[in-house]
Write a protein that binds this DNA or RNA. Sequence first.
DNA 1: AGCAACCGACCGTCGCTACC
DNA 2: GGTAGCGACGGTCGGTTGCT
Length: 391
Amino acid sequence: MENKLPEGWEWKKLSDLADFFYGGAFESSYFNEDGKGVKIIRIRNLKQGFTETYYAGEYDESYLVQNSDILIGMDGEFNIVKWTGKPALLNQRVCKLIIKSNDLLPDFAYRSLVKILKDIEDRTAFVTVKHLSAKHLNTIKIPVPPLETQQKIVSILEKAEETKKLRAQADELTQKLLQSVFLEMFGDPEKNPYGFKIGEIRDLVIETQYGTSKKANEEGRGIPILRMNNITYEGNWDLSSLKYIELDHKEMEKYLVYKGELLFNRTNSKELVGKSAVYREEEPMAFAGYLVKLITKSPVISEFIAGHLNSKYGKMYLENMAKNIVGMANINAQEVQRIPIVLPPIETIEKYSRIVEQIRKNKNSQQQSSLEINNLFNTLMQKAFTGELVL
DNA sequence: AGCAACCGACCGTCGCTACC
DNA sequence: GGTAGCGACGGTCGGTTGCT
């Protein structure tokens, strides 16, 4: 862990350069979400996507967090964030870090701690959730270069992060491009500006099949089986967590999906029901019972239906179909086929399919470059704090 | 085939206890 | 008396099963 550092760098104990303040156990009966009192920072608030909580009771000023203070979550994930916003109260299990030494830039400390905490988290034993102790925080040592070097490293990492963000934005744009190509070629289905014939999905489908309800295994016995979490909301495939299933000859005939066929998620939460994607792998896979397979006249038609179902209009239609159901929403094989769809000439559909394929090819190479950027970023992080970065 | 209850993994938070 | 440590409660969510 404590490797050799270059000239001018030094391992220093964080507790010598900074003070830790731990949050108090504020009475939860004073918690509210109506904005009464002062904002309180609980562990969940170090992550995005949680509603803000306020505390309406008495408190000591020393528990207040100021803008740009560094906060560390001590339960569950050991998150670290720079607080932005008005002063707020520090709840129990959250720690505030105040750099007191002039030899350490807060931003440098913040960035080096991201990795250090991740390493500690990886090594922490746990029963239900991981706990970070104050004792442990006090033993943390960080490599400290001269101030000038710290500044350089911080600005390099900020730039690298910016690049990562740009890449992510480009990926998002590609997704939008797919949607606008559909809209451009076939028009808003509600208005049907090109005056295409309007039909139903059933007009394009030869046959539908439900998948198998047999239990899957994770050990890799048998062939891979597609489940609902393998289809993303956007209609792409995420094959990162596959399960497997053993099928006999007869079941193989019923429960395999082949290249160019369309899969539709029939049971899920209201927002996610109806996720659909065209199967694009050469080797067939099995599919689970909550997916419905639509066999169409040709792969280009599958692509067109998927484009329709994944368009803004398609999503809206699906959500309305499932609107009266509480909890798990359901759309069966008959109902999918009754969804209205424009029926453009086959030449237009073929052209659409060719464009989609081209965009997907680009997307794949983009994903490759995203991966490379992420790897580069990790290497950069690694090198930045061991002094291997040439500045 | 349709549906909802059930299951279990996940994990943030509570609050008891030991210790200074 | 206050704080740090930590076991476990219980909510949530994705997925599965079993009843009709």
